[in-house]
Design a binder for these strands. Structure first.
Lengths: 217, 217
DNA sequence: GGCTTAATGTAAAAGCCATTTACATGAGCT
DNA sequence: AGCTCATGTAAATGGCTTTTACATTAAGCC
């Protein structure tokens, strides 16, 4: 019945039907266009075809919506990293490099998620779920570090947590400073991917890691 | 000469006397309290005791003020880094470690500047002055990398620019992710300073740098 | 000292946002 | 059919940003 017909996805009646989802998608799109700062609650509502007050039925406030976008971002991020890591196949070293590329690829392909996650001003611990999702994503990196460290000689073996933090830091640093080609970032004499790969390579050599199957010199 | 008396610093009459400066200081204070996102033009004006429209005589808009804060931040940052570098004394290695500590100390001591510089959404190239100031700050790091590389055996000597970028990235990554102890960041099993120092140490070992006066093994 | 001018503030208004409250609609269950 | 709760709407409040017309004053010039 409804009033006219049934337009693919537009709001059908008094009730939207899937507003929460629509708002999350709208927010993602708006953040992609104007950054987390430029994103407005009202515009997301407009985008979803509802009144400015409607979103409050699904999110406590603007920050809550932002935090949910970040949450979803961490989930996607974890998936992407885990897929790249692929359980350390064929070997930890190769898989780690692959994960590094995946890290930057995510930041580039999903700038809205990435900025919601790291540059929106939403504290990581603003909600337990958010923190947990962030931790799960980091856990992938940490697992990689564990596996990498495990195959080092027991002697000077570094703490895997520290290694994971270092790699996270340099990855995030590169993504954040040079992440995308847009005007919002600095330009580089090389690609971010090359820069990260080289950095991790040097770092791992510093740990004595490639003493695995490759030649140390 | 003045109008009524001379009260230390309060606005004396119709004209403020030093509004631009007052606004910059107010912005810095407000950003420190509520982050770059929470900072408002109107509140800065209130803080300076002028009407909401007054700031427009000194800054094109809110972003312009933010950019000027960032500009000032880069200048301070350059000074801090240069002081720590101290021309590479007593040796490049020691001086670099000192600069790393200085980097984090700045981020911690001047979170408002740091976030205006890197986390405010103001693009680095939004104005030529801003870009130049950023470049000057980076130049200090780059000089350090040059000096460090210069003392390496000519053979496998890495590009100094790349080294500078790597160190910048890991420094920024750590500052940005774990920078301050506040709720806005993640907590660590060690201090950010220790983490950075260890990371740079490993990285430099990977480059073969400490083959200077120390023992390579 | 007067006059002129440009710099610096103010007042008021338009338009957007976030958020709240009271009310409306309708989906699902009995 | 009747109830009830989830989900929307309308309208209002209070801030913020930015613009425009106007007020005040600092400074230079005679």
């Amino acid at each position: 019945m409804s009033w006219s017909k049934d337009e693919k996805d537009g709001p059908r009646g008094y009730h939207h039907g899937n507003l929460k989802e629509a708002l999350l998608r709208a927010a993602l799109e708006l953040i992609a266009q104007k950054g987390p700062a430029g994103f407005t609650f009202a515009e997301a509502a407009r985008w979803a075809g509802v009144s400015p007050a409607a979103p409050y039925r699904h999110f406590r406030d603007r920050d809550d919506l932002l935090a949910n976008v970040a949450l979803r971002g961490f989930e996607q991020f974890e998936i992407a990293l885990a897929r790249a890591w692929d359980n350390g196949r064929p070997d930890a070293f190769t898989a780690l490099e692959r994960m590094g590329k995946s890290y930057l690829a995510f930041a580039r392909a999903e700038p809205a998620y990435y900025s919601a996650m790291f540059e929106s001003g939403i504290p990581p611990g603003s909600t337990p779920e958010l923190r947990a999702a962030g931790d799960r994503a980091f856990a992938v990196l940490r697992e990689a570090a564990e596996k990498l460290c495990a195959q080092m000689p027991r002697h000077g073996r570094p703490p895997a947590l520290m290694v994971a933090l270092h790699i996270w830091a340099i990855s995030h640093g590169i993504a954040s400073l040079f992440g995308r080609g847009d005007a919002a970032h600095r330009t580089l004499p090389m690609s971010a991917e090359e820069l990260l790969e080289a950095g991790v390579l040097v770092y791992l050599r510093g740990l004595g890691v490639p003493a695995e199957g490759a030649q140390p010199a």
